[in-house]
Amino acid sequence: MKAVQVIVTAIAVLALTACPAHADPPTTQQITAVAVGSQGQAVNGYHETPPDGAVPAVSDCSTPSPSAVVADVYACSPSAADASTCWPSTPGSLLCVDNPWDMRLHRVAYQGQLPPVQPTASPDPFALLLDDGTRCLLRNGGSWGGRDDGFAGAYGCGKDFGSNPAVLCLPSQQSCIDRSGAAWTVKVGPLGAPDAHFPPPQTRTVSEAWFAGDRIPG
């Protein structure tokens, strides 16, 4: 009888060893992009891409970038200029980040004096890397599709950061990112016609979240 008990105990120990405990997802890395120096030049591996034609002009830079964690990082209109996260550069221009993976910046022209702006109380990252490798950029205007469950697109995760699929949230939500735990999560799903029916959004973990930091000397 004693030998049987020893064998049963050994089998139980082996079974526990073969079934590892559930591991929590890794903590979301919050990365602060420092892309422009104090002289208005690209730094830290970022580079300016030449414009396709004339440098686009922006008309209003009176609001802070929604992704800024410091003062005087700007969001400018119109949205067609892709100028939602921009740093002051040479007089009359700003450098705006395209995405952190290609480390590209593009220049926009602005007439007048830039006003001082302060970051919002709860900035939203301008870029997300999800746990399955999907890359997403914060929406900056444009006409996106819809769904019959009321979810709207907040980040474009499709080809060339298009809106399909997208990080989704309800209009009543203050943020589209659940930051209640160390590993942030988002809802991801497709968009279509306003009355299009889709399965419930999938929950994905955010591996990396990119914010806009200060300019640095050099």
Rank of each mutant, 00 (worst) to 15 (best):
Q202V: 11
D178S: 15
W144S: 03
W210D: 01
V8K: 01
T32H: 05
R135S: 07
C169M: 14
P56H: 02
G142Q: 08
A10Q: 04
V206L: 01
F151N: 03
A80C: 07
S77F: 09
W184M: 03
G218C: 12
C176P: 09
R215A: 14
V55T: 12
A57P: 00
A68D: 02
S163L: 11
D149I: 03
C176I: 13
C176H: 13
F211V: 02
D98Q: 13
S38C: 03
V6K: 11
N99E: 11
L114V: 06
S38D: 09
A183P: 02
V117R: 03
S163E: 14
V58Q: 02
A154V: 10
R135Y: 07
V117G: 10
T32I: 13
A12I: 15
P64T: 02
V117P: 08
A81F: 08
P50N: 04
N140F: 05
V4S: 14
V13C: 02
V58E: 00
W184P: 01
A18P: 10
P26K: 06
G142V: 11
D82T: 11
W144Q: 06
D82P: 00
T17C: 15
M103H: 13
L95V: 09
G145P: 02
A12W: 08
P66G: 02
V36D: 05
P26A: 05
I7N: 13
T203I: 12
Y74D: 01
D149Q: 00
G156W: 11
A75H: 13
S62A: 05
S67T: 03
L128F: 10
R135M: 09
T28S: 05
S207I: 07
R107M: 10
A193Y: 14
P199N: 07
G40R: 02
V73W: 02
A154Q: 12
I7Y: 13
G162Y: 15
A212T: 03
W144C: 05
D98Y: 15
S84P: 00
A81H: 08
A18F: 15
A109P: 00
L128N: 09
D131Q: 05
S77N: 10
C61Y: 02
T185G: 07
C76G: 03
P200Y: 09
V186Y: 10
G53Y: 01
S163Q: 15
S122T: 15
G112M: 05
L105I: 08
V206Q: 04
A71C: 07
K159P: 01
P25C: 06
A10K: 06
L114T: 10
Y155M: 10
H106W: 06
D60L: 07
P115R: 05
V97D: 12
L14M: 08
D82L: 08
P20S: 14
V69P: 00
A80T: 15
T49L: 09
A166C: 14
L16M: 14
V70G: 03
W184C: 06
K159N: 14
V186Q: 10
Q111F: 10
S175T: 15
G142I: 12
A154W: 09
A109V: 04
P116S: 06
S79I: 05
S93L: 06
Q202G: 10
T63L: 08
L137R: 06
